[in-house]
Amino acid sequence: MHELGIAEEILGIVLAEAERNQAKKVSAIRLRVGVVRAIEPEQLSFIFDHIARKTLAEGAALEIEEVPVRVVCAACGEMESRSFAWECPKCKGYEISVQGGDALEIVSVDIEV
């Protein structure tokens, strides 16, 4: 349930932005979330809907862009993966490094003013 803490952080940032722009309503929130963050989009949306009730962000849609990890294999080159890997998805070799996939960002907020 670590999605609760993250949902609370998102709501805090979104409401501050809404207030700063004198919004009447927040309609959508775009997020960038890396796959290694272990965040379940449905769970996050469910919790966010709940805590955003009776705020300017009530009913706002969370649009979550999942960011894959980059697997760099000595033999096969670079590729994306939707999960962490400890062998190359192609050649099954161990000469790899796994990078990125740890984004946790608010990209933009759609508001009505």
């Binding site: 952080e9 722009n21 997020l31 960002e105 608010i106 933009s108 907020v109 508001i111 009505e112 003013v113």
Partner: peptide, 17 residues
């Protein structure tokens, strides 16, 4: 009237932390 607009935020969700 109501206008729709997109506010670019581009910040870490964990900024306060």
């Amino acid at each position: 009237t109501t206008d729709k607009m997109r506010v670019d935020v581009e910040r870490s969700i964990q900024q306060s932390v």
